[in-house]
Amino acid sequence: MGKIARDQHLPAIAADAGLVLAATSSPNSPGVEGVPHFRTLEALLAEAEVDAVALCSSPQVRYGLAATAIAAGKHVFLEKPPGATLSEVAALEALAGAAGVTLFASWHSRYAAGVEPARAWLAGKRILGGRIVWREDVRHWHPGQAWIWEAGGLGVFDPGINALSIATRIWPRPLFLESATLSLPANRAAPIAADLTLRDATGTAMTMDLDWRQTGTQTWDITVETDGGMLALSSGGAVFTVPGETRHDEDREYPGLYRRFAELVEAGTSDVDIAPFRLVADAFLRGQRETVEAFED
């Protein structure tokens, strides 16, 4: 019941006629007036009638919570990133399959209004190259969140994985990491900035500039150069621009996620796409580290 739960999950659930917020759980934060609240997930599962659980905890503790919910026969919605490691997510997928419940690794940025139009527009084009610039102010978006600077917290890849979730959705071919430089503050275990070069099997490159030290205007842009002109996705994927056309539709990321989750539960299937997470893991595996000045929140 932290910031993302209150800002995004609760409004999306409330707006969907097919969903009911049956209970909440948090060891420290209060619940919602009129809704049963429990300090632990185990207590919630023992006392509340629920069909599914949305886990909005930090990724370092996500596996244990998800495994507990799956063992209780509940469908599970995982906030991004889906876990602290790829192995954890693979284990959860196997547990969900054995239990016959749905597991959904959600990527909210894929549900931004411009993403599917971008995917469709690029499908018939020859891609010449692409660039991601994802720069924001960590003090504004993650104030006092110490977990994000710890091992497994991802640092600047917490927002950066949103860009990668879009890139892996719209790019017609699989992307892999060629090189990376990670900038780690002297007093932190996770990077505050990163530069990546990705390529696909044809050798076409997409570069990525991540930085958490941006002040003023925030930048969440992806551009792709093609033989038919340039595609631009800005404002995190909400604004779609190609030659002769610009679209800017309303925010529908989290409502889209919950619709998808409900569809998966109804169909008895799971959706556990780890392509964005795999690229982040590759950056930590292969990237060069550089130490930069200490960061104080």
Score class of each variant (00 low, 15 high):
residue 127 I to L: 15
residue 277 F to E: 12
residue 210 L to R: 01
residue 161 I to E: 10
residue 214 Q to F: 01
residue 95 L to T: 04
residue 242 V to W: 02
residue 203 G to W: 06
residue 236 G to F: 01
residue 40 T to G: 14
residue 295 F to G: 09
residue 146 A to T: 11
residue 242 V to H: 01
residue 239 V to G: 11
residue 11 P to V: 11
residue 223 T to A: 12
residue 211 D to N: 13
residue 190 A to N: 10
residue 149 W to L: 00
residue 88 E to P: 05
residue 84 A to W: 08
residue 263 E to M: 14
residue 215 T to W: 06
residue 269 T to C: 00
residue 135 R to A: 11
residue 37 H to V: 11
residue 271 D to I: 00
residue 262 A to N: 00
residue 172 P to W: 05
residue 215 T to E: 13
residue 48 A to W: 06
residue 107 W to Y: 15
residue 24 T to R: 10
residue 145 Q to C: 09
residue 263 E to F: 07
residue 243 P to M: 01
residue 289 R to H: 07
residue 110 R to C: 01
residue 7 D to G: 08
residue 198 L to I: 13
residue 157 F to Y: 15
residue 2 G to T: 11
residue 275 A to P: 03
residue 70 I to W: 03
residue 138 V to Q: 11
residue 221 D to P: 05
residue 122 L to E: 14
residue 194 A to D: 13
residue 115 V to N: 01
residue 36 P to C: 10
residue 154 L to S: 07
residue 155 G to P: 09
residue 123 A to E: 15
residue 284 F to R: 11
residue 207 T to F: 12
residue 138 V to T: 12
residue 93 E to N: 07
residue 18 G to W: 00
residue 42 E to V: 04
residue 185 P to E: 07
residue 297 D to P: 07
residue 85 T to W: 04
residue 93 E to S: 06
residue 60 Q to E: 06
residue 39 R to H: 09
residue 214 Q to P: 07
residue 44 L to R: 14
residue 73 G to R: 13
residue 178 E to G: 05
